[in-house]
């Protein structure tokens, strides 16, 4: 009886019916997927990263396939927070699932402005902060590379909204647990990891990088062992919930993340290949738990650490 498994998880004041979320940048604003699955089946979904103003993004080519993965340099193209609230949110606000807004900025004040605007929107359950973006006032170094920047930013955002704040970490750092600890001590309600891993593909005929942006972020099945390892490390260091993301394409990998220490997981690139993969993964996880006689998914969070 697969249905007797308890899939629900709690993060701060939100209860998710299951731990499966769709990852930012891979799920549009949600309604684009309505044709392919019942969005109400999901624990939640995270919309494309929002900035203060509409952003056009990078010049093409923006993507290139790699073995079991892809590089992207979309350049955070999005409609901006105001159009999101006025045009996109009305299309999804009545869904019976959690909508999480992903935000980014080029300086602290921009994050704060977006967070304050979203704080007024009842339909937004939580805010995920993308810190894998350059801090213009600090010479363009990524916010997410420096524990102090992450601490300050998290603190500011926490004071601009009552909604739970999830800090989404970049793997392109020396020690990701240090950054996770900074987010925790600044009051983050959770951390999500990992964002994409920076990479490059060279077009050998043209003798130059394939992507117009030169570098791009690697995602897809190829990166999952990196994500699992990082979740495992961070779990040993912090006490707030972890959301695992990176290369999840089936329920076995999803379970690996949970056993490494993730309370919830996000599915990204896999949505491009099978638009209803999230629903398949939910089903697969239920079946696994039921087969293993595990009553609740929360029973196996961090299970891999007991050895």
């Amino acid at each position: 009886m697969a249905n007797s498994v308890n899939m629900s998880v709690k993060l701060s004041n939100i209860i998710f019916k299951n731990p499966i979320l769709a990852a930012s940048g891979t799920f549009g604003y949600g309604f684009e997927y309505q044709k392919y699955l019942d969005l109400n089946m999901l624990g939640g979904f995270i919309v494309k990263g929002l900035s203060v103003k509409e952003k056009k993004g990078n010049k093409p080519p923006r993507i290139v396939e790699t073995p079991c993965g892809m590089l992207n340099a979309i350049g955070l193209q999005n409609v901006g927070v105001d159009r999101f609230v006025n045009e996109k949110l009305p299309e999804i606000k009545d869904l019976n699932t959690h909508i999480i807004a992903n935000i980014y900025g080029s300086k602290e004040a921009e994050f704060v402005e977006i967070a304050e605007k979203l704080d007024l929107e009842k339909a937004v359950s939580a805010i995920e902060v993308n810190v894998s973006c350059p801090n213009v006032s600090k010479g363009g170094a990524l916010f997410g590379k420096n524990p102090d920047s992450v601490f300050n930013l998290t603190k500011l955002i926490k004071s601009s909204t009552k909604k739970p704040v999830i800090v989404k970490l970049t793997p392109n750092v020396e020690d990701i647990s240090l950054i996770a600890e900074a987010a925790e001590s600044a009051g983050a309600d959770a951390v999500s990891l990992i964002n994409t891993i920076t990479g490059m593909v060279i077009d050998i005929k043209a003798k130059k990088p394939f992507l117009a942006n030169k570098t791009g972020g690697l995602s897809g099945p190829a990166i999952y062992p990196v994500g699992v390892r990082m979740v495992y490390e961070v779990y040993e260091k912090i006490n707030i919930p972890i959301i695992g993301v990176g290369g999840i394409y089936n329920s076995d990998v999803a379970i690996q993340y949970i056993m490494a220490g993730a309370s919830l997981i996000e599915i990204g690139t896999a949505n491009f290949i099978n638009p209803d993969i999230t629903v398949k993964i939910i089903k697969g996880m239920r079946e696994f738990l039921s087969r293993e006689n595990i009553q609740s998914v929360s029973d196996i969070v961090g299970a891999a650490h007991s050895m």
């Binding site: 997927y33 093409p60 080519p61 923006r62 993507i63 992207n72 979309i74 491009f272 638009p275």
Partner: peptide
């Protein structure tokens, strides 16, 4: 154009238009 999703969500397949948009 190179495509990842084919359904309009990844924003990977854009081309530039005359009104300076994608």
């Amino acid at each position: 154009s190179r495509m990842a999703c084919g359904i309009g969500v990844c924003l990977g397949c854009v081309i530039e238009t005359n009104d300076k948009d994608f």
